[in-house]
Simulated assay, not measured.
Amino acid sequence: MLSRLLGPIRSTTGTARWLLVAGVAITGVFVLMALLAPWITPTDFAQRSVDGVKLPKLASPSGEHWFGTNDQFYDIFSRVVWGARTALTVIVLSVLFSLVIGVVLGLVSGYVGGWTDRLLVFLTDALYAFPSLLLAIVFSFVLSNALGGGVVAAALSLTVVYIPQYFRVVRNTTVSAREATYVEAARAIGAKDTTIMSRYLFGNVVQSVPVIGTLNAADALATLAGLGFLGFGIQPNEAAEWGYDIERALDDAQAGVWWPAIFPGAAIALLVIGLTLIGEGLNETVNPALRRRRLQEVVMPARGLATSGVAAAGTADGTEGER
């Protein structure tokens, strides 16, 4: 599957390639921030003092505090950088969980059919009928009592939102592929159902899953920020979260103190743009209807060489005719 994905990328030019390059570049900056957070930030995400000296409250951006400080005596630059780690961790976990569960359920539902298919379709359609943010709020409220208000609870609350999307795509593709000739041949040689689904169907029904995953990643970040803004996301003592920081900065923004809200908001916007560009670029790359392949230049022979070649051919024909 990786070779099938890399092949179109190498042969794609124009808008799709620039979308991918721009998206990877923007997202790569946030990945580096997340990985290097302990070394590039002056304080921890919940640290209010340095060497026993308390940080100033609502200090404007300066050389000492690049993004200023907020009303909780936190360094905003540190909160933004640590928030990148929180956001990417939640995104990776939620997309990975929903991908694994949705793909497995879609394969089973599409291949087995019958009442199993009807029941799974009914359950996933019921989940899909809810607005994504409302569904995430409900499961966040339920899971926070069992798992606490940490990263895992936030990731699982987002997982429930995206399972129906993977289920629908994989299930519909499996329904059309289960009657294919290669599946019938596998049944004829006595292959088990689990073998058919894992070896013969899986690779053919997950072609569009990477594209859905990148698009869901952007939506998951926005949903996570919405949960934090409404107070249903990650607790502030568990990790830095951009949506919570924006909610805390609303009163300061009304008073003319702009920096506590502008930097977390800009981080959310940039990362959403980066992930969306990756998804759109992959969509144009993988989708044959949208992809434009690089055309090889046709080199015509020189005029003199072409004339001499025609003359030589005519001489040869004439010689054969005389013989």
Rank of each mutant, 00 (worst) to 15 (best):
119 L>R: 08
108 V>S: 05
145 N>R: 14
118 R>W: 10
143 L>Q: 10
121 V>Q: 08
158 L>S: 07
140 S>A: 15
154 A>T: 11
120 L>E: 02
116 T>G: 12
133 L>K: 03
183 V>R: 05
139 F>A: 09
141 F>L: 15
160 V>D: 02
118 R>D: 13
135 L>M: 11
152 V>Q: 11
192 K>C: 05
157 S>P: 09
192 K>Q: 10
105 L>S: 03
186 A>H: 04
194 T>P: 02
180 A>R: 12
103 V>G: 00
108 V>I: 15
187 R>V: 08
191 A>M: 15
144 S>T: 09
188 A>F: 04
164 P>R: 13
129 A>N: 01
182 Y>Q: 06
158 L>F: 04
177 A>W: 03
133 L>I: 14
193 D>L: 07
182 Y>W: 13
186 A>K: 00
128 Y>W: 15
146 A>T: 15
187 R>Y: 07
178 R>I: 09
155 A>S: 14
156 L>H: 05
155 A>W: 04
120 L>P: 02
102 G>N: 01
128 Y>K: 09
134 L>T: 00
179 E>M: 12
129 A>W: 03
127 L>H: 00
181 T>G: 12
108 V>A: 13
103 V>K: 02
143 L>K: 10
110 G>N: 01
185 A>S: 14
177 A>C: 02
144 S>I: 07
162 Y>Q: 03
191 A>H: 10
135 L>G: 06
